[in-house]
Computed example of a mutant assay.
Amino acid sequence: MARYTGPKTKISRIFGEPILGNGKYLTKNSNPPGQHGAARKRKQLGEYGLQLKEKQKAKYTYGVLERRFRNTFEEASRMRGVTGENLIRLLESRLDNVVYRLGMAPSRPAARQLVSHKHIMVNDQVINIPSSRVKPGDIISFKDKSAANTSLTSQVRGKNPKFGWLDWNESEQKGTFIAYPERENVPENIKEQLIVELYNK
């Protein structure tokens, strides 16, 4: 199963943001990667460079490789409404992202692992494809055997209250995907319009 397995702090240093992990090492060394770090003279990025960088940031943030990301963009462009906002909605509705947003896993890579190892059910059916799309009304929960595993359930921290498009039932350890989120409610620092401009060249 294709995914990024390289150094996470290096990626965070490229963008200057903790897009992978909690960013605790980024506070120690926020210089761009490379032999000379901050001392290296770096040229100003042009229009294409800024657009490409924004696309790369979105890909690393959601853990999506190039072909899957391109297919998601093409699907977003066929939908009604603003293409950039549709792209963010589709990325947010990925099963691994929803598991992460519900607080069932501490990070997106951890959520991806939960899904691929068959610990997660959607509407009482085990789904092991992280890129599966969740629809409004779908209920996400642990498999019964996994719910009894304290090493898994101990990592559950519950949903952040600012994610209003999700609902989390603490007593039943179940979450509901209520609706696709509006762009202003998604906290990711991604300029999706630059991605649209890049693919429309």
Rank of each mutant, 00 (worst) to 15 (best):
T83V: 02
V64K: 00
T176G: 06
R78W: 05
A38W: 09
N160F: 15
H117S: 04
V134T: 02
K10I: 11
K143E: 09
N169W: 01
S131Q: 13
Q125P: 04
A110M: 04
E74R: 08
R89K: 13
A105M: 06
N189R: 11
Y25E: 15
G37W: 15
R70F: 07
S171I: 12
R157V: 15
A147V: 07
N123K: 14
D96K: 12
L95N: 07
N29W: 11
R101Q: 05
K201P: 09
L26K: 10
I178E: 01
A110W: 03
Y62Q: 10
N200H: 02
L102M: 01
R80D: 08
R67H: 11
L20G: 02
L91E: 08
S93W: 06
K145C: 15
Y4M: 07
G6C: 07
L166I: 01
E92M: 03
R78P: 03
K41C: 06
R108S: 04
N189A: 13
E170N: 07
S107M: 09
K145W: 12
L26I: 14
I195F: 00
R89G: 06
N86D: 10
F142V: 07
R108V: 03
S131W: 06
G81K: 04
L198Y: 14
K191P: 02
R89I: 02
K8P: 04
V126N: 10
S77I: 04
Q173P: 02
G46I: 01
D124V: 11
E172I: 05
E170D: 03
A111Q: 09
A148P: 00
L50V: 11
D138G: 03
V186N: 02
R13W: 09
S30I: 12
K159L: 11
R101T: 02
R70S: 14
I140W: 05
I178G: 13
Q155D: 15
K201F: 05
R183P: 01
K41R: 15
K159S: 01
K24F: 07
S151F: 13
D124F: 04
T153C: 01
S171C: 07
I195L: 00
G46D: 15
Q125W: 06
I120S: 00
G137E: 12
G137K: 12
R101M: 07
R70D: 02
F177I: 05
G175H: 05
Y4W: 15
K55V: 03
T176V: 13
A38I: 11
S107A: 12
L91I: 06
E170A: 11
T72S: 02
I14W: 10
G49D: 10
S93F: 05
E54W: 01
T72E: 01
Q155H: 14
S30M: 08
P109L: 10
K43G: 05
V126R: 04
A147W: 02
N123E: 02
I11S: 14
E192R: 14
R133T: 03
F69H: 01
K145N: 14
L114M: 08
S132G: 05
E75G: 12
K43P: 05
V134M: 02
V134N: 00
S141E: 15
G49W: 00
G21F: 12
M121H: 12
N185A: 07
M121W: 14
S146H: 03
G21T: 11
T72K: 00
Q56H: 03
G16H: 08
E192L: 05
P130M: 12
M104Y: 09
P33D: 10
